[in-house]
Design a protein around this nucleic acid. Structure first.
Lengths: 156, 156
DNA sequence: ACCCTGACTTCATTATTTCTACTCAGCATG
DNA sequence: CATGCTGAGTAGAAATAATGAAGTCAGGGT
């Protein structure tokens, strides 16, 4: 069943996000896009079968996460490349959250030769945190997910 | 193909996290867990078929995200309930990131009667942000995902 | 003009998810 | 104490999606 067929899930932004981001390979493709990969063959290298890759790239373009651009290298035919669009760049916190969770709870068994972290461009480490209106950090245990009824008349 | 069959993905904490969290329904089940749901029938209400539900609850327990507890209401037989374990509570930032992305990029078309937000227990809104070592907020555009080689000798 | 290369698509096979019917434990009833 | 009722949880067939290999197509080199 598609979760979004239930109205209760349609009104949940988690379920709506997962309809796009939850498809197999999509978040790994976006990871590659954040590493600067743009070409079909570069994406294919992560192990996604080519049939799936074409379908996923189309879906990510349709959803506005990637932008399709024609390019042509000299002596080559024209091809498509895929670069992060605004909505795609906004997926960074999702990836960062997954990195933090994975590094904490699924540390590599043996042969852990590579670590993933989030850093500033200059290289100093950054992490995701909950902050309140004044920018003060809030402990995760003090945070709850709230479902708020929105008055149909004056929501903004 | 399982992404983790490639060594390059095994060393990626995103791929490792998705092996657990990326299974269909799992993040929606955890959402319900954060809302305080613990019983089989409560989880079933989100639309997951019972066959899948049993398999997913088992997997989440095995992965240490949920803790299975026997309980018995008076006049009823003993049953199992499922409460968030430490690793499960740590999924909160992932859900928060998905909420923020969904609310921004997939706003409900019409009939948007409910909003999801993250708040403190007292009800003041909180949001996810990148912060550096000193707790200063860092713009998302200044953040990159870095793959760092870890010295193989001292890793254990 | 013809073959070669590599991006991208299509289709039969295979793995997952889903649906339906079933089992099983405990209580209420007789 | 046996019988039937209720709802949690489980085990198999049908539908759906992912996979892998073969095919298509555009350009360049010879």
């Amino acid at each position: 069943m598609d979760p979004l067929s239930l109205p209760a899930n349609q009104s949940c932004p988690i379920a709506r996000s997962l309809a796009v981001l939850g498809q197999k390979w999509n978040l790994l493709l976006l990871r590659e896009a954040f590493f600067g990969r743009t070409k079909y063959a570069e994406f294919q290298r992560i192990g996604v079968p080519s049939g799936t890759l074409g379908a996923r790239l189309d879906a990510l373009v349709d959803a506005g996460l990637l932008e399709r651009r024609a390019y042509q290298e000299k002596g080559e035919r024209t091809r498509d490349e895929y670069v992060l669009a605004e909505a795609g760049r906004d997926v960074m916190p999702v990836l960062a959250a997954l990195i933090q969770w994975g590094e904490t709870h699924l540390p590599k068994e043996r042969g852990a030769d590579v670590t993933y972290t989030t850093t500033t461009i200059e290289g100093s480490p950054v992490r995701l945190e909950f902050v309140d209106d004044r920018g003060t950090a809030v402990s995760r245990d003090a945070v709850i997910i709230a479902r708020q009824a929105r008055t149909a008349t004056a929501s903004g």
